[in-house]
Design a protein around this nucleic acid. Structure first.
Ligand code: SF4
Ligand code: SF4
Lengths: 159, 159
DNA sequence: CTGAATAGGACGAAAAATGTCCGGTTTAAG
DNA sequence: CTTAAACCGGACATTTTTCGTCCTATTCAG
């Protein structure tokens, strides 16, 4: 139960982009140096972000990446799923694998509930939200409020 | 971001125990067969559960495991932490490793919030709750309500 | 043309997850 | 007392996932 480096790097990379003018083209090398992330690894991650349409890229000399939408139109779940595909806390919640017992397994139901709240929270947090908080924190203003609010659980599996 | 097999097996094993009379001594071999879990692996997992005080064990002929407390006095977070230690969604949230930026990283804050709600949900679900739902589901009664309720986020990091 | 930069895929090392095995200890029962 | 059953504990083996690297191709500015 751990967030992967790839996801973390992806979010931090996007935060870096969001901290600059929209449309500003930034090279992998710059993000890599400024955020201390292995360059080739970050390159791979940005390929995924590009394929997912969260950023655009220019190739060739003077090339680099820039945001495809405004940062308040991108949420954190978007980024995570771009980097590592759909979130699945367990086999039964993974469309690809699945589990034959999932219809009669209370644990599966519990994990499903938890997964949905996590996804809701991630989906409700925009990159702009996170970038704003990030900037605040770097300027030594201590945060007073939690970043997220409580999320209503969806009423799942009620036919 | 995945629940490990060890944790899943641990919970299912405890569910099995909870489905029998309190004090009933059950062998690893029985749980292993009935729940289709590799025997030696399950043995290891139950060692952890025993060390954590969730179950007691009798050694020697006629030995086995039995619940150390009533199932409504054990929650799912207890089981998870018994099997794999404290939950940590990231380095910065892991007391052992940590991250030097955690004071000025909005992502850390977001992950912290999420982790807390997950832990709250797990802590609010007792083994008895899960066992009840499990039994219901196995007898073909379709569940009407989600297992968990929404959890208030704690107001973290407000000095 | 040349050098800079991403795209894509193959590859490799390290870590974690998932088990297995075996010798040791405890205990019930004959 | 002996034996067989069962857990204990640690070492070990296998597989999968994570965390990258590297190389070639492609694209583009100057
Ligand atoms: S939690 Fe239940 S349904 Fe999900 S994978 Fe485990 S056994 Fe299957
Ligand atoms: S999220 Fe921020 S604080 Fe947490 S490990 Fe990553 S960089 Fe460090």
């Amino acid at each position: 139960m751990h967030i992967t480096r790839a996801v973390e790097y992806g979010i931090i990379g996007m935060l870096y982009l969001a901290g600059h003018d929209r449309g500003k083209v930034v090279m992998i090398d710059e993000i890599s140096r400024k955020e201390d992330i292995p360059k080739s690894f970050l390159g791979k991650i940005f390929q995924s972000l590009t394929r997912a349409g969260l950023v655009n890229s220019n190739r060739g000399a003077g090339g680099g990446f820039y945001m495809a939408r405004d940062s308040d139109q991108i949420n954190i779940l978007d980024i995570i799923e771009a980097v590592e595909g759909k979130i699945a806390l367990q086999r039964c919640l993974d469309a690809a694998t699945g589990c034959s017992n999932s219809d009669s397994c209370a644990l599966c139901l519990l994990l499903h509930d938890i997964q949905e709240t996590v996804k809701q929270t991630l989906a409700n947090t925009t990159l702009a939200d996170l970038a704003q908080k990030h900037a605040d924190m770097k300027s030594h203003k201590h945060p007073q409020r939690p970043l997220t609010e409580s999320v209503r659980l969806p009423d799942i599996r009620t036919e």
